[in-house]
């Protein structure tokens, strides 16, 4: 059963279309990687999925009991957050707010959820630390734990490894993969084709021509071959996959 179905969606700003005819579906347990050049509308698509802006055309269907506020996401950091005086605990807990419409304070259930998710992200030790004193990688984990408090079903990640060193980048990808294996559907915007090829189950490529399908089909397609070759890094991985298909 699919969680999200997007049909003929057009996204953009104030009537100006950035990308149209977007079609894809996300099933439970999928790992969708969204690729595309700078300015192809990846972030815009994400904002539309999150109801932060209106679709210009087409529809986004949420099925299987998924409601619009059960899509958690990891945003790019804003300037405000850089020097924000908040403890890790306070931030992770704030992810639970959506589930308690009229309660002014957190209950036992929320605190348990926050504790569990900090454990999952390996940041239990940091609970009392101030967010502004953490490294970039640690900050991303905190925001990921917060997103997990909001939802267990779908996570949208907008370039989650920007600004992380190679080590932290690897750890971040492993963490996301672990979540995916635990049953969380992942939608990840990325510039890194190698990663898409390594971890994703499906690929959505925005631009003209566009592509949506399984990772294997993407690697077989003209667009996929071109893009992977273009990015060079993906070369060896592509060979591997190619072998398997042959």
């Amino acid at each position: 059963m699919s969680l999200i179905t997007v049909r003929n969606l057009a996204v953009g700003y104030e009537g100006q279309v950035v990308e149209e005819n977007i079609n894809f579906t996300v099933n439970k347990g999928d790992y969708l990687c969204i690729l595309g050049e700078n300015g192809s509308g990846k972030t815009t698509l994400m904002k539309t999925l999150l109801h932060l802006q209106k679709p210009l055309n087409g529809e986004i269907l949420l099925q299987d009991g998924l409601t619009s506020n059960e899509i958690g996401y990891l945003p790019q950091q804003t300037v405000v957050q850089k020097d924000f005086p908040a403890s890790v605990w306070e931030i992770v807990l704030s992810g639970c707010l959506g589930r308690r419409e009229w309660h002014p304070f957190y209950g036992k259930e929320e605190k348990k959820l926050a504790t569990e998710n900090m454990e999952r992200m390996g940041i239990t030790r940091l609970a009392r630390r101030s967010y502004r004193e953490l490294s970039g990688g640690q900050q991303q984990r905190v925001l990921l734990a917060r997103a997990l408090c909001a939802t267990q079903k779908v996570l949208v990640l907008d370039e989650p490894v920007t600004g992380l060193d190679p080590n932290a980048t690897m750890e971040m990808y492993e963490l996301i993969q672990k979540l995916n294996q635990e049953g969380v559907a992942i939608l990840m915007i990325s510039h890194d084709v190698e990663v898409a090829v390594q971890y994703a189950s499906h690929v959505l490529h925005l631009g003209t021509p566009s592509f949506f399908g399984s990772k294997e089909a993407y690697l077989e397609s003209e667009l996929g071959k071109l893009f992977v070759l273009h990015e060079k890094k993906g070369g060896s991985v592509e060979m591997e996959k190619g072998d398997r298909h042959a």
Binding site: L52, S68, N69, G72, P75, V80, A86, G95, G98, T151
Partner: peptide, 10 residues
């Protein structure tokens, strides 16, 4: 802390 996240989660 994060207006967009708050909005996205309802």
């Amino acid at each position: 802390f994060d207006e967009s996240f708050a909005k996205a989660t309802g």
